[in-house]
Each structure stands twice: as C-alpha cells, then as structure tokens.
Amino acid sequence: MKKQTYLLNILLAIFVGGICLTMLLFDVLAPYVVVPHLSIPLLVLMTVVPLAVENYVGAPQKREWAGTLIMGTLTLTVLPICAGQLGDVSILRLFVCSAAVFCLTTVLYTSMSKRMAGGAKAKAAPAVNALLLYLAAQFFQGIM
C-alpha cells in the first residue's frame, strides 16, 4: 500500500463532470435525443468507471475513507445539479441515493479489488468487476 491520495475522487470529478456536460449538451443542442435519467444504475455506472480506471492507472491506494466518501457523495450530488439534470428528483433524495450508492459501490469494489487476480492474465479483471457491479445495480432496480 502506498501513501494516501485521492486519485479516485479526482477521477470521479472528471468522469461525472464529463457525463454531466455531455447530458447538458444533448439536452440543449439535441433535445430530440432521450437522455438517460438520473437513476441508481447511472449513479453506479458513474462510480464504477473511476474505480476501474483507478485500478489501471494507479498503484493500490490506502484510502482515507471519510474524506473519500464525503467528497464522492458531494461530487455525485452537486455536479448533476450544476448541469441542470435534477429533473423531478429532490435534492435530498439525490443526496441520500448518491451517498448510499457511492459508499456501497466503493466499499464493495475495493474489497473485490483486494481479492482480484493480478498479473498479465487478469488484465480485464477490474473492468469485468465494474461491469458485474453495474449489472447488479440494474437487476436491483428491476426488482424494486
């Protein structure tokens, strides 16, 4: 384990910012395109991609959990609001969902990544784990 950094939060801000910007551009410049709503699977997707990318670009991090989780929740809540993607979702609901999704997904993915096979033969493992978590979130929404 290396020293504490917040690589995950930086990647999250870049990725969520990019998705929100894309949604904003589609909303304004191509209003006939049906843009996905803010939903639990979308929040999970916005969390697992930076987690997978973190696995590829950085050495294993020692997380400072409190800071990581607070800033992750803040990112997932504030950036969609700034992009005007709130729709009919209340800010409180988005905050609670973002907190729950980010905390659960990060804890699950981090615990999975510690048990992931390493080496050249397991290059796809971080991406596959991310995909599995996303599919699980879709399934979860389906049964709700």
Binding site: T5, T75, C82
Partner: peptide, 28 residues
Amino acid sequence: RPLWKPLSAIVLAILVLVTMQAVLQSVK
C-alpha cells in the same frame, strides 16, 4: 494538503458546468 487536489477538481467541474449552462440557456 492532499485533500485540495480532489476539491480543486470538483470546483473546476462545477465552474465548467455552471458556465456552460449559462451560455447555453439562451438557445435552449
């Protein structure tokens, strides 16, 4: 101050999104 790096990224993303929304509002 390691916490400042992610905070700067979040603030930068907020600034970009708010500016873009303000610019695009007129054509929406």
